[in-house]
């Protein structure tokens, strides 16, 4: 059935005009906003998270806050840390709060707290482990916390703290510890030193504190994400073991095949699998060995050493560790 213009009711016509008016309004707003385009804000989300509140309330004995502090979002993080922002953004950054405190009467003696809120504890562990300083001392404050001569770093739950002093002075180091303790009291408890599959690496011979979570594009391969690595000193060099739990065995198999193809595309020469590791991929890359495989839902391997025998021996141990984990 159809209605001619004369048959349309007044209500229908008013309703039609209202809909058309609304569409015209939407078009006008879009046009107006386009003229005021701000590349700084377009397409970026995020707002200051809970971290800002934690630092806003934080008092450190013997130290005076220098101002109210600052907050940073994914859109503005690079305003604070420039190119290093990419490390955090790739891992799952949500917000960061920063605040400085100075020793009373000594403006040159100050410390800065930078509290990063990441998407989860794995993301926090990733940025913590990627930046672990050599020669760091265990702080004893938390499973993932260490000090250097002028700084303190820790990861707990979805938070990562960088506390940096302007000078390597005892009074400031004490301030770093006190600030960290005050913050830890507010942060969620952390049950273990490293999340998830990191605990599956063979403990014997592993370099202390060497477990790192690579959040994105590990070993230069796009899409090879969420990979744990651990270092094993071997003779004068080092072996690197790697491990990742995938959603299911098929995904682990696919990634092993993709990594083999990636290595081949980059000059790698595939070799027959070692007798003790059937089904594994062995690839020689410019004199160094890459040995990796899928085992249940795990993608695992050993890489980067010119010592083939040592590579195979560590691979055997890693395979056995995974068998124990998922009999």
């Amino acid at each position: 059935m159809e209605l001619s213009r004369s048959q349309s009711s007044l209500t229908q016509r008013l309703l039609s005009m209202a809909v058309l008016g609304l569409l015209a309004l939407v078009a006008a707003v879009v046009f107006w906003q386009q003229g005021r385009y701000d590349p700084a804000s377009w397409g970026w989300g995020g707002a200051a998270g809970g971290g800002a509140g934690m630092l806003a309330d934080l008092a450190v004995p013997g130290l005076t806050p220098l101002g109210p502090g600052e907050g940073f979002t994914p859109a503005t993080l690079s305003d604070k840390i420039d190119g290093k922002a990419e490390l955090y953004l790739a891992a799952g950054f949500e917000s960061m709060a920063a605040r400085r405190y100075a020793l009373a009467g000594r403006p040159a003696a100050w410390l800065e707290l930078m509290l990063y809120r990441m998407k989860d504890s794995r993301a926090a562990y990733s940025v913590f482990s990627n930046q672990r300083r050599t020669g760091a001392q265990d702080s004893g404050l938390a499973p993932n916390a260490y000090t250097t001569s002028n700084a303190l770093y820790l990861a707990q739950g979805p938070y990562y703290l960088e506390a940096v002093a302007s000078l390597p002075e005892p009074a400031l180091k004490q301030g770093l510890t006190q600030a960290a303790q005050a913050l830890l009291a507010k942060l969620p408890a952390a049950p273990s030193a490293a999340p998830g599959e990191a605990g599956l690496f063979p403990a014997q011979g592993m370099k202390a504190g060497s477990v790192v979570l690579l959040a994105k594009d590990a070993f230069g391969m796009a899409g090879l994400n969420e990979i744990f690595i651990a270092t094993y000193p071997q003779g004068g060099g080092e072996l690197m073991a790697f491990l990742a739990r995938r959603a299911d065995p098929a995904t682990a198999q696919e990634q092993a095949a993709a990594y083999a193809a990636f290595l081949k595309d980059n000059g790698g020469a595939p070799q027959p699998a070692p007798a003790g590791l059937p089904g594994a991929n062995l690839v020689e890359v410019f004199g160094a060995w890459e040995l990796f495989w899928a085992q249940g839902p795990y993608l695992a391997g050993v890489r980067g050493s010119e010592d083939r025998a040592a590579t195979e021996a560590l691979a055997q141990r890693l395979r056995q560790a995974l068998e124990k984990a998922q009999p």
């Binding site: 420039d82 930046q131 300083r133 050599t134 250097t148 001569s149 700084a151 960088e162």
Partner: peptide
């Protein structure tokens, strides 16, 4: 040499 461009620790 490490953790640039900001660094933070003297060990960097």
């Amino acid at each position: 040499a490490h953790n640039g461009p900001t660094g933070g620790s003297l060990e960097d």
